[in-house]
Amino acid sequence: MKKKKFKLQRQVGTSLPGLGDKKEKGPMAKRPFPPGQHGRSRGRHISEYGIRLKEKQKVRYHYGLKDKQLRTLVIKSKQKESNWLNAFVDTVERRLDNIVFRLGFFPSIPAARQAVVHGNVLVNGKVLDIPSYICSLEDEISLKEKLYDNVIVIKTLEAPTLDCPHFLSLDKKSKKPVGKVIDTPLLADVPFEFNEQYFIEFCGNIG
C-alpha cells in the first residue's frame, strides 16, 4: 500500500497529504520525477489533455474518490451554483472521512475512512459509518472512547499531517477531544498544489 501511495503522488508530481505524507517528507521530496524507467527523462511531452487529467487525478487520489463518485459530485455541484468549483470543494472537504483526517485523528484519509466504516466515529454522539456523509455546520465529531487510547490516534493528534483548518475546531487540551464544523470550507483550503482552471476545463463536459 505504501508503494502504491508513493507511486500515485509521483505520477501527478505533487505531494498529497490525504495519503498520509507530509510535504517535506513525502515522495516528491525523495524522487521529484514520475515513476517508470523514463521518469527521469528531460523534456517529456505531456499533451494538453494529459495536463488537465493530472489535475483531476490529484483530486481523486487525495480524497480517495472513484471516477464515478467524482463525476456525481461535479454534476451535483454544477446544479447548485454557476461557480461550481466552490460547491465541489465545500462538499469534498465536508465528507466525514476527510473531516476526521483534517481534525488530526488519523494520519491519512484512508485510515480515517477505515475508522468510520468500522463504526469508531461519532457524529453528534451517534455512530455514523458512512465515509461519504457530508457534515453540516455545528456537527460535532468524536471517536469511540477506546480509540483515544490508540497509539496511532495519540501520535497523530500530537503531530498531525496537516494543521486544523479554519472551518473546524478541536480542543486539544482535552484527553478526549471533540471536533466541530464551524465554517464553510473554501477553495483555498484544498491542501495540495492544484490548478483550478485545468480542473474546471477537464470537467467541463461532465453533466
Rank of each mutant, 00 (worst) to 15 (best):
A87V: 00
R44F: 15
K66V: 12
V181S: 10
I152P: 06
H118A: 07
L186H: 06
I200T: 02
G125Q: 05
G104W: 03
V89F: 05
R40P: 15
K155R: 07
D90T: 05
F194S: 04
I130N: 12
P185K: 01
G50N: 15
K56R: 14
S82I: 04
K80T: 04
F106I: 02
T161D: 01
D21V: 11
P131I: 13
Q57D: 01
D129G: 03
K66C: 14
R71I: 15
R102A: 04
K78V: 12
Q11A: 07
I75D: 14
K58Y: 03
S174V: 01
P34L: 13
K30I: 09
C164F: 05
P160D: 02
Q37V: 09
H166V: 08
Q197H: 08
I182P: 01
S47M: 04
G50Q: 14
L143G: 09
V89M: 05
L170P: 00
L157D: 03
F202K: 10
P34W: 07
A87P: 00
D90L: 06
H166N: 06
V123C: 05
H166L: 04
H38T: 12
L168C: 06
M28C: 11
K2T: 15
L65V: 10
R40M: 15
H38Y: 11
N124K: 03
D183S: 10
R95D: 14
K30T: 08
Y148L: 00
L147V: 03
K23D: 07
R113L: 08
F167Q: 06
A115F: 01
S77F: 02
D21R: 11
L186D: 06
P177C: 05
L128T: 01
S136Y: 00
L162S: 02
T156G: 02
D21T: 13
K30D: 05
L53W: 14
L137Q: 11
V92M: 09
D149P: 06
G64M: 07
E196F: 01
K58W: 02
L143A: 12
P131N: 15
F194W: 13
R10K: 10
S108F: 02
S108T: 09
A188C: 06
T72W: 15
E140F: 01
V151C: 06
K30C: 11
N124V: 01
K176A: 07
R71F: 13
K176T: 05
T91L: 09
S47F: 04
S108W: 07
W84T: 08
F192M: 06
K68I: 13
A111Y: 01
S169N: 02
V127A: 04
D67W: 09
E93F: 08
D129S: 07
F199Y: 11
I141S: 00
G179N: 03
E24G: 06
F88N: 10
K56H: 08
Y133L: 13
G119Q: 03
C164R: 03
Y49F: 14
H38S: 12
L168D: 03
F199R: 09
Y63G: 11
R42M: 14
K56C: 01
L16V: 14
K2N: 15
E193D: 12
V116K: 11
P191L: 06
E55D: 12
Q37N: 14
T14G: 06
K146E: 11
S47L: 07
D183V: 09
R102G: 03
R102Q: 12
L96Y: 04
E140P: 00
Y63L: 13
Q114S: 10
Y61Q: 13
I75Y: 14
I46Y: 05
F194M: 02
D171R: 12
R31M: 09
